[in-house]
Simulated scan of single mutants.
Amino acid sequence: MRCQPRYKGLVYIWLKNKQSCLLCNEPADGTAPICMACETELPWLGDHCETCALPLPAAGLTCGQCLKQPPRFETVIAPWTYGFPVDSLITRFKHSAKWPFGRLLAELLAQFLQHRFDEALERPDALVPVPLALKRLRQRGFNQAAMLARWLGASLDIPCEEQLLKRIHDTSAQQDLKAEARRKNLRNAFALAPDAPIKGRHLALVDDVLTTGATAQALARLLMEAGAARVDVYCLARTPKPGDAT
């Protein structure tokens, strides 16, 4: 009896020198399965809020929301806006278990972060994936944030600590809610693991997309109140303000 499903597609091996682009199927230029043309055309995040990475019309600014209510996290690092084809790749990775797409995006995010570290962004002590509710984890079969954090940790040589945070209440799906409803939805949704080593550490939360920042804010507050020295947020994409062009 066959124990493995039949799969006729390509299996991407990051140690190989020759890859085909996952987006256009042309030969890739490097070890990651994406060609230079497709990588250039990704929706790279331009000018944005220095704190929450919200797309803005000019560089070096802080958005009104962050000025009015400064979040507990220090900064959000995201390479892209949530637009085509990144939005499609994230959706297929997250909801259809197309892991090569997630791995590709994680590899590009790792390169982006390394560039920022070289430009004096402070390296964190550990990567902490946003936890997934147990019910949703059982339905999906994996936590996409945890997978991203593992890939980033391996590429950047930063420990990935998946057990620091727990999601103790199963809440409604965040994408179906507006900003205030998201904040209310997350009240008391998270907790620290017993004896979690938090005090004095610089931690980076890892997730796929930042929309209103409600989840990141809830987790950052929890970590900072437990004594963390600093909390950053690393994600693949940042959504624009509702009504703005992507």
Rank of each mutant, 00 (worst) to 15 (best):
R72I: 07
T75R: 15
T75N: 02
V76L: 06
I77D: 15
P79L: 05
Y82F: 14
G83Q: 15
P85M: 06
P85T: 11
V86D: 02
V86L: 01
S88M: 13
I90A: 00
T91Q: 14
T91I: 11
R92D: 14
K94G: 04
H95R: 14
H95F: 15
H95Q: 14
K98T: 08
W99E: 15
W99P: 04
F101H: 14
L105N: 03
L105M: 10
L108V: 07
L108Y: 03
L108F: 05
L109H: 10
L109G: 04
A110T: 07
Q111A: 09
F112L: 09
H115P: 04
R116D: 11
R116P: 03
F117S: 01
F117T: 03
F117I: 00
A120C: 13
A120D: 15
R123N: 07
P124D: 04
P124V: 07
D125M: 10
A126T: 07
V128P: 06
V128N: 08
V128Y: 07
L132A: 01
A133W: 03
A133V: 10
R136N: 12
L137G: 13
R138G: 05
Q139Y: 09
Q139T: 09
G141V: 00
G141Y: 00
N143Q: 03
A145G: 10
A149F: 00
R150F: 10
R150H: 11
W151L: 12
L152H: 02
L152A: 06
G153T: 07
G153F: 00
G153W: 06
A154G: 09
L156C: 01
D157F: 15
I158D: 07
C160P: 08
C160W: 00
E162W: 06
L165M: 08
K166T: 12
R167F: 12
I168G: 01
I168C: 08
H169K: 15
H169G: 11
D170K: 03
D170F: 07
T171Y: 09
T171N: 05
T171K: 05
S172Q: 15
Q174F: 10
Q174A: 08
Q175Y: 12
D176I: 12
L177Y: 05
K178W: 05
E180N: 13
E180S: 14
R182A: 03
R183T: 11
R183I: 13
K184T: 05
K184F: 11
N185Q: 02
R187P: 02
A189F: 02
F190T: 02
A191D: 08
L192N: 00
A193F: 02
P194I: 04
D195W: 00
D195K: 12
P197R: 01
I198Y: 01
G200W: 00
R201C: 02
L203H: 02
A204N: 08
V206T: 04
D208Y: 07
V209H: 08
V209F: 05
V209W: 02
T211Y: 13
T211K: 13
T212Y: 05
T212K: 02
G213Q: 07
Q217G: 08
Q217I: 07
